[in-house]
Computed example of a mutant assay.
Amino acid sequence: MASIPYWRLSGFYLFYFAVLGAVAPFLGLYFDHLGFSAERIGELVAIPMLMRCLAPNLWGWLGDVTGRRLAIVRIGALCTLLSFSLILFDKRYAWLALVMALHAFFWHAVLPQFEVITLAHLRHQAARYSQVRLWGSIGFILAVVGLGGLFERFGLDLYPAALMAIMAGILVASAWVPDAVPEQRPEPIGQGGFIRQLCRPGVLAFFACVGLMQVSHSPYYTFLSLHLEALGYGRGLIGLLWALGVVAEILLFLVMAPLLARFSLRQVLLASFIIAAVRWLMLGTLADHLSVLLVAQLMHAATFGSFHAAAIHFVQRSFGHRQQGQGQALYATVAGIGGALGALYSGYSWASLGPLWTFAIASLAATAAAVIIAIPTQENRV
């Protein structure tokens, strides 16, 4: 790693995913603290996901056209912080919806472009991406454990300030990272432009699975903390349980390079989808048993870790260097569509059907993804 700015890249991932560590377990709790119903919580959580459908493609196109990806990352980080600071002025539903939309528009500009910069630095060491990305998982752990203890002791009124402090860390880290340009490698023979590359059967199947996987994760990200709190778990323990899942994810990232050398991307994705289907059933039916909950959290290594690492590699292989930004942006967009649909369904399902059926629907979505990726196509050589 001596030839790449390992610690600078890693520092950015640490702060970026620390924001996710502050959002995933605690945003729903914060909205519940403000007195919103499950339906309204689902809608507010869905809004950033919906912005993920628009923002990455716009910023991805801009990055590919201008080549100024790092400038986009830095502007996005600054505007994310400024936009979210508007939450300090009002807590009504309409204002919060505006804040969720505005800050997400800029936040979702950041990661797809930074993924291209990271892979450009790594060049022929792309299999070592997981060793950089694991620092994002460490940032997530620090956030969920630290904030879990903080909120248990001092309450959720501190939530906006805590999140803004982490967003400021993204801005500082982006200023520390040197720029890099993707390698000018030949375009894959016979693939043509972005649309033609996208329309190959194997690529379309992959993106359908990405959307379904994010649908399946939505009850987990939106309501797991509320679910566990209703079952009697304290906020400190809830933070530790979230951290356990990410520890498993880190361990998976450490061995991802040899796993990808031994198994195809398609095999890794299939295993991730099957494990996700089982995991959601466990959380929906047996989360009151701590031992089962611990096993379910360890399964995060597959449902997020191996899935995300394999997906990033798939996108890199499927698009030429001139379409890398658009490819990574489309991955974020499809994930956003799935996440938004999942957050909406889980909000209404949670209120009317309860946790068991909400997680059962999530399991069905993951199962559908497994079926799609398991069906061979002429070009589905993932």
Results as ranks from 00 to 15, higher is better:
106 F>P: 09
95 W>K: 07
95 W>R: 04
144 V>M: 03
95 W>Q: 02
124 H>A: 14
138 I>R: 05
98 L>V: 03
100 M>S: 03
143 A>N: 05
96 L>N: 08
131 Q>E: 13
137 S>P: 08
143 A>F: 04
134 L>I: 11
90 D>H: 15
114 F>R: 07
138 I>A: 09
118 T>L: 06
104 A>D: 03
144 V>S: 07
150 L>G: 03
155 G>T: 12
162 A>I: 01
111 L>C: 07
127 A>R: 13
135 W>S: 06
141 I>F: 04
146 G>P: 08
139 G>Y: 04
161 A>T: 06
146 G>W: 07
112 P>E: 09
161 A>C: 02
155 G>I: 09
135 W>I: 07
140 F>A: 01
114 F>Y: 09
157 D>R: 13
114 F>V: 01
119 L>A: 04
119 L>F: 15
126 A>K: 13
156 L>E: 03
137 S>R: 10
135 W>F: 14
141 I>T: 03
133 R>E: 01
113 Q>N: 15
100 M>C: 09
108 H>G: 11
146 G>H: 06
114 F>N: 01
94 A>C: 05
102 L>Y: 09
144 V>P: 00
114 F>G: 06
103 H>A: 13
93 Y>E: 06
128 R>E: 12
117 I>W: 11
159 Y>F: 15
126 A>H: 08
107 W>M: 15
126 A>D: 11
122 L>Q: 02
122 L>S: 10
91 K>F: 10
152 E>Q: 13
117 I>R: 08
120 A>T: 13
97 A>S: 15
103 H>I: 11
134 L>R: 02
154 F>L: 08
138 I>P: 01
141 I>A: 00
116 V>A: 14
101 A>R: 13
96 L>F: 00
147 L>D: 02
158 L>T: 08
91 K>A: 13
157 D>P: 02
151 F>K: 04
150 L>W: 07
125 Q>K: 09
126 A>E: 13
123 R>H: 15
93 Y>M: 07
155 G>V: 12
148 G>Y: 03
148 G>C: 00
101 A>I: 11
133 R>M: 03
156 L>G: 06
143 A>Y: 04
158 L>I: 03
89 F>T: 15
120 A>I: 11
98 L>H: 05
